[in-house]
Write a protein that binds this DNA or RNA. Structure first.
Lengths: 146, 146
DNA sequence: TCCAATTAAGTTGCGTACGATTTAATTTAC
DNA sequence: GTAAATTAAATCGTACGCAACTTAATTGGA
């Protein structure tokens, strides 16, 4: 990358940041009826995929540390989405498990998001392309940040 | 967009979110020596482009409201990057102006960022493509959020 | 002219993000 | 077997983001 391309990196970083914020705002519209934030929805997605995960496993998938997850999960526990209990095998680990509500709400939450997303009307091929490029960028950045 | 593509939107939103956070972390490495955060750097970029802008003009460029900018600009004022003064023509507007330090630091800050960015070693053409696609996505999302 | 609508900043409150540190449990190396 | 190293959560402090609201200045129409 040449010096002259620093401006390009500046622009790409800002456009990522901007697009990310708008995308999340878009999702919040669908999530608001459930009293969920976007990061909380990400936790549900991970648990719907595989329930009963320790906190650090969620952190790896979402790239969050315990400093972010601990208070977030406590809020979700208070609202009845999930439970937090120490693993019997290893008392350092906190196992996160969906409540009945957390499990069964999946259908309704997905329905609400589908209604919003369906209006977007973007070519899925474009989505696929962006997704692939983002993953390449994420790989590069992760390597550079150790 | 079909129902089956909701998962794709989920993945794209998360990849944007993830890439944005990593990209910002990457920038913070270059900005840390100056005690600047990424949003603060964005304000400097806007002011280096055009000095003496009212708060709401900065807000439009960065998509920030006064609730975000007011405290951020006060922090930057305290650190000596800029000044905040009421416009004489319209006492509702707050004119933001770079200090001497704010103006002259541009060279050094750019140098620090260039050192980091140069290691990235990504094809500028890929950057250009992502940038264009992000702008298209931003347009779509902005339209859908009014 | 004057008052209702608009515009601009600021304030409040909540929920992330994240660097740095702390506390506690488990592994390991000897 | 035990002390040192490692791992997992939690805690602390700072700085965003942003919805909702307030305050103050300006504008514009009757």
């Amino acid at each position: 990358m040449k010096d002259s391309d620093m401006t390009l990196a500046n622009q790409l970083c800002f456009s990522m940041y901007h697009a990310s914020r708008l995308f999340i705002k878009f999702y919040q519209q669908a999530l608001q009826p459930f009293g969920l934030t976007y990061p909380q929805y990400l936790v549900l997605l991970a648990l719907w995929e595989e329930d009963r995960q320790p906190l650090h496993a969620l952190g790896e998938q979402l790239d969050f540390g315990s400093n972010t997850l601990t208070p977030l999960l406590k809020r979700m526990e208070n609202k009845g989405w999930l439970t937090r209990e120490l693993a019997s095998s290893d008392h350092r680990q906190l196992i996160i498990q969906l409540t009945e509500t957390g499990r069964t709400s999946k259908t309704e939450i997905f329905k609400s998001i589908r209604v919003c997303v369906r209006q977007q009307d973007i070519d899925p091929a474009d989505y696929q392309g962006m997704l692939a490029q983002n993953h390449a960028l994420i790989d590069t950045l992760e390597k550079m940040l150790n």
